[in-house]
């Protein structure tokens, strides 16, 4: 039981980081994209491949994950420089579908539909991490560092500028701010964090396959951000916690196994609708 709970906490940590990375785009900068699983997945695959091929382990993999996540994000940022609003939603969907296709079909690199197995577990100064408690300690430490740095960054003038772009792109532009460069920067930052969380995911599950990084995964993360509250780091964390915990709680209900999956999903959907009606700014975002 203890192992089970710790395992869930590790998963929450990973997804909270991913939700935070999406919140940078959606919540802070108002760039509505549904492609986070593409960056998360690229990071996971990059990390898996590097650690499997080179023996550099988790840390080498994480660096690769960050780099590839950032690179993919900078590609994904290109549509946002040309179009906004509804076009950006669709363009980001396009990015998501194309990358899912790459994961699925680049057999030689990604292992195709079967995925990659046997990804090494992390080690720290010769101490190998393999129990959920050790994972939680390591991942939580990483997450805390990132959240601390991000909160500093978002409280700075850079963070204010992001919010200014969200409210009205023209105003910061009129003040001589380079909005174009800002958008690329925030995409790269978001992609780097998503890539890192992907790497953490790969080395925790020790197995990656395309279905973990499909459109539904991107929607799931978006739901976390929305349920928790956009534009608040704590909101993203809370949203991740709720949406990961919820299906686990339902596991204890006396339901036939066959209908378990759909019932969970139905409840997930109903919660999304309820949040939209009752707390449209998310649980932390306050009443509108």
């Amino acid at each position: 039981m203890e192992v089970y709970i710790l395992g869930i906490l590790v998963t929450i940590t990973i997804f909270a980081l991913m939700a935070i990375s999406l919140d940078l785009l959606v919540g802070y900068t108002g760039l509505f994209t549904i492609a986070q699983a593409a960056m998360f997945g690229s990071g996971a695959y990059a990390s898996a491949i590097v650690s499997l091929e080179t023996g550099l382990g988790f840390w080498g993999g994480a660096v690769a994950g960050i780099a590839v996540g950032a690179a993919v994000a900078s590609l994904a940022s290109i549509p946002s420089l040309r179009v906004s609003g509804d076009y950006l939603v669709l363009a980001s969907f396009g990015v998501q579908v194309v990358f899912h296709g790459l994961f699925l079909n680049l057999d030689g690199v990604t292992g195709g539909p079967a995925g990659l197995r046997g990804i090494p577990r992390p080690s720290l100064f010769g101490w190998s991490i393999d129990s959920p408690a050790e994972y939680l300690a390591l991942y939580l430490a990483i997450a805390v560092v990132i959240v601390a740095v991000l909160r500093r960054l978002l409280a700075s003038s850079f963070g204010l500028l992001l919010q200014a772009v969200r409210e009205d792109e023209l105003v910061p532009q009129a003040l001589g701010k380079d909005v174009l460069r800002l958008k690329i920067k925030i995409f790269v930052l978001s992609g780097a964090i998503a890539g890192l969380s992907g790497s953490m995911y790969a080395h925790y599950i020790t197995f990656v396959s395309p279905e973990s990084f499909d459109v539904h995964a991107s929607i799931f993360v978006l739901a976390m951000v929305l349920v928790g509250g956009m534009g608040t780091t704590w909101g993203a964390i809370l949203g991740a916690a709720i949406l990961i915990l919820l299906p686990e709680v339902l596991r204890f209900l006396p339901l036939p196994t066959m209908s378990m999956g759909p019932i969970r999903q139905i409840i997930y959907g109903l919660i999304l609708i309820m949040v939209c009606f009752l707390r449209p700014r998310g649980l932390i975002g306050g009443r509108s």
């Binding site: 929607i219 997930y268 999304l272 939209c276 009606f277």
Partner: peptide, 8 residues
């Protein structure tokens, strides 16, 4: 989001 929820 509500629409996605209903879809699910």
């Amino acid at each position: 989001m509500a629409s996605l929820g209903l879809f699910v």
